[in-house]
Amino acid sequence: MQKRMLALAMFVALARCAATPVFSEKLASTEAPIRAATELGATRVPEAALQLRLAQDEMEMAKQFLKDGNKQRADWLLLRAQADAELAVALAREAPLETDAKSATEQVKALQQSNQ
């Protein structure tokens, strides 16, 4: 009977683990955009660099909360870090595209002027 109870308890624990992502998976989901933002040169774009920095800090804090046993705060901080990192990715992509677009527009204007 006791063995049955233990087995049931283990089954329930495993089932819960399978239903909600474990912390390491959430961590991976946050690390991916942080890495992407870094590779896109977020550190060279001030706004993106700020978001990247926030994401990295929140991720570290999440790890600390997990270590301290506050799993709920850790999860929320990871979600915040993920949102910051995704914004950092977008801002890092935006900067060179805007520069390119402006430069192309100016070149066309210059070309049009030289044509007149």
């Binding site: 995704e86 914004l87 977008a90 935006e94 595209l97 805007e98 390119d100 677009a101 192309a104 527009t105």
Partner: peptide, 21 residues
Amino acid sequence: LATAQARIELAGEEKARADRE
């Protein structure tokens, strides 16, 4: 993020327009 993505889209459109021009 939605705003930044919109700006990316606009920059792409501007670039394409400039290239066409």
